[in-house]
């Protein structure tokens, strides 16, 4: 079932005299139960896009359908009711600093006119879900970043939403805390069946929990689909950049661009990455290949790797190498221009 359908969505901001096109003709379908990653560099428009999903930003043109409701056709009051079904968490947590943890979680319930006693009861259950039962009376200022995000998640779950939007929810957290928050999100998705949208600039977040991904660049979706497909065969330069660069440039060094050299990209799938294929190949052909970049990472629980090789000049040798690699179950792709 389709949970969120975005049709031909565009958003233009007036910035002084000129108009800035933040989003251009976006089409997306998110299905029920998806953990859908939307990834892009900062300024790509992903935060604006996610705010169109609950109409915090009204699109300039195009439609957003949540279930069978077209958000653009709802009255102000109906929209507010619909929003209680679309929860959101933020990079900066955005908790009420003057209210304690339990009152923060009660807040959305009280907005929906739930009685104080019922709201407290529900809040206590939620605190258990996020593992913070002992912090009910604490104020946000006394909590760590990870704890604050847990409170924000509990608050987001209060009204039993169908959709949870996460806007850079882990970007302010350290790697360990990020991992625990992602695990919590995955749990919520599995146990409660909530569809989750994850906005991030971190590839690791997408590979950790998402089943689908859309790559957004300069306000446009340049590529989308199953995480495995996009990661194994990135078609757009933005996707390659994100996947190869990885996070914090740890994927390794600069790439030497050797003009005229024939380059191929090898994708390791399943168990092939544990075989010393490249080494065997070098031994067999008695020729050197230039390893321009290599990277392996964990994608959806399966070890994935890829490598960019610069081939020797001899064209016959090149063909032999490609055939050899293909025989060993590797996926080969020509790389042109800069990688």
């Amino acid at each position: 079932m389709n949970e969120i359908v975005v049709k031909n969505l565009s958003k233009t901001f007036a910035q002084g005299e000129q108009n800035v096109e933040a989003l251009k003709n976006i089409n997306l379908i998110v299905e029920t139960g998806d953990i859908y990653g939307i990834i892009g560099m900062s300024g790509a428009g992903k935060s604006t896009l996610v705010r169109c999903f609950n109409y915090l930003e009204k699109p300039t043109s195009g439609e957003v359908l949540i279930g069978d409701k077209n958000l653009g056709e709802l009255s102000e009051k109906e929209l507010r009711e619909e929003r209680s079904q679309i929860a959101m968490i933020f990079q900066s947590f955005n908790l009420l600093m003057q209210k304690n943890v339990i009152d923060n979680i009660c807040f959305p319930l009280r907005l929906q006119k739930v009685s104080k006693a019922d709201a407290r009861k529900r809040a206590k259950e939620l605190l258990e879900v996020v593992g913070l039962s002992d912090k009910a009376k604490a104020y946000p200022a006394q909590l760590s970043g990870g704890q604050k995000q847990r409170v924000a998640i509990a608050r987001a779950l209060a009204n039993n939403p169908r959709i949870l939007l996460c806007d850079e929810a882990t970007s302010a957290l350290d790697p360990q805390t990020t991992a625990s928050i992602l695990e919590l999100l995955r749990d919520i998705n599995k146990k409660l069946g909530i569809t989750i949208i994850v906005i991030t600039h971190q590839m690791s977040v997408v590979s950790e929990i998402c089943n689908k991904v859309a790559i957004i660049e300069k306000g446009q979706v340049v590529e989308n689909g199953l995480v495995e497909d996009v990661f194994n065969h990135p078609k757009s330069s933005a996707a390659r950049e994100l996947i190869l660069r990885g996070d914090d440039n740890k994927a390794g060094g600069t790439v030497e661009t050797l003009n005229g050299e024939r380059k191929i990209r090898i994708v390791f799938t399943e168990n092939s990455s544990f075989e010393p294929v490249i080494a065997n190949m070098v031994l067999k052909f008695q020729t050197a290949v230039n390893i321009l970049r290599a990277d392996t990472r964990n994608v959806g629980g399966v070890a994935k790797g890829e490598m960019i090789l610069g081939l020797p000049e001899d064209t016959e040798l090149q063909e032999n190498i490609i055939v050899y690699l293909k025989e060993r179950g590797l996926e080969i792709e020509e790389v042109t221009g800069d990688v």
Binding site: N54, L56, R80, E81, E82, R83, S84, I86, A87, M88, F90, S92, N94, L95, L96, M97, F107, P108, R110, L111, Q112, R155, N159, L165
Partner: peptide
């Protein structure tokens, strides 16, 4: 913090709610 106001909006708070409760 404008972020807190945005969070309240995302929960379906009306402008009156935002002024009085946030």
């Amino acid at each position: 913090d404008p972020g807190v106001i945005e969070a309240a909006k995302s929960m379906g708070a009306s402008n009156w709610d935002i002024v009085t409760k946030v």
